[in-house]
Design a binder for these strands. Sequence first.
DNA 1: CATATTATGTACTGTTTGGTACAATATTAT
DNA 2: ATAATATTGTACCAAACAGTACATAATATG
Lengths: 194, 194
Amino acid sequence: MAGRPRKFKEDEVIQKACDVFWEKGYAAASSEDLLQAMNMGKGSFYLHFKDGKEELFKRTLDFRAKQSLQKIRTRLAETNNKVEVLKSLFHERLNTEEYFKNYGCFLGNTIVEMSNLNAELKELAAHYLKQLEQVFEEVISEAQENKRISSTKPPRFIARYLINIWNGMNITKRMNGSNDILKEVVGLQLQILD
Amino acid sequence: MAGRPRKFKEDEVIQKACDVFWEKGYAAASSEDLLQAMNMGKGSFYLHFKDGKEELFKRTLDFRAKQSLQKIRTRLAETNNKVEVLKSLFHERLNTEEYFKNYGCFLGNTIVEMSNLNAELKELAAHYLKQLEQVFEEVISEAQENKRISSTKPPRFIARYLINIWNGMNITKRMNGSNDILKEVVGLQLQILD
DNA sequence: CATATTATGTACTGTTTGGTACAATATTAT
DNA sequence: ATAATATTGTACCAAACAGTACATAATATG
């Protein structure tokens, strides 16, 4: 193993790229924007991301989605009230800092942008969002067995119900200045978990 | 009034542009794409849409939103069961033809794409989506007065509840090959109108 | 028919785009 | 030291982009 040492850490530059893609979407994020945020020259960039912008976006989606899912799984593993954690995930999304208030869900945004442009990227985002749904389903299934949820609807059904609220919030949150009414709405919708 | 006659009808070219923007979004719709679909040369285009692509997009949003809202208002005016019409709007969205299945709601798509790129366009889309919410609210308000809805929650609240389902469907619909479960989910969520 | 007026089509322009070529540089192994 | 190797920075490139300039064409009016 020889050669000039890398100036960058892979996780860090992907994190930076993620910020840019998350803010602007795929098309509107120029390579200028990305390279500047990653603090990388073109030479290094195209050496490490052979397929350029599209590869970077894929890696970014993978990184963010796995990171987020991991955080959620950890929280669920550490709590004694998993249903409450699920509810918190929703409430937290409506209480994000001012800076992030327009960012929405990176996966949902990608599905919207890519639906008719790049089937592979759309499917990748859908894949990870389905994993989130799967996590919901497992929690619900277990909670039903433990009689912590009174609804007897199939876990699969309740999980999709939740994902639909999740996706709704992604857009509704950005329609209005205040989230007050939406918070109440989501509170009611989450009663399916009582 | 003199001069060479126009080759195009304004409504028709805006309709065509709408198809392109709806399919690809703002950024990914090139002027080539648009002009070809509109069957217009650059000369005519920039004469009639002085501010180019952005003006066209605004006009397109106006056109589509007003058209859709008008259709809905007409249906509501002609029925004797307005609540049922509301429900139909949702069900129809999950039964669109194969061709349109990935298109989603033009207004919701625009809010997602423009949130951090163009505040004016985002606000315009949000404005029209709020008008839809307003229509929901009026129907609900009247239905409560007529005791056709049992929920006593504020109409404003129920309307936002519906809009959140609407926005959720925009993304959830495109996550999965089949809409079967989502149809049941939405059916349950719409019970708030019973 | 002449003129004013409006619309059209095409050639052109400067900028930005994503991406490549390649020489210079910094390391490890021999 | 030096050869081999991996990374970096910069200059470059062709294509696509949104938009302009302008000569030509088709009408209404006097």
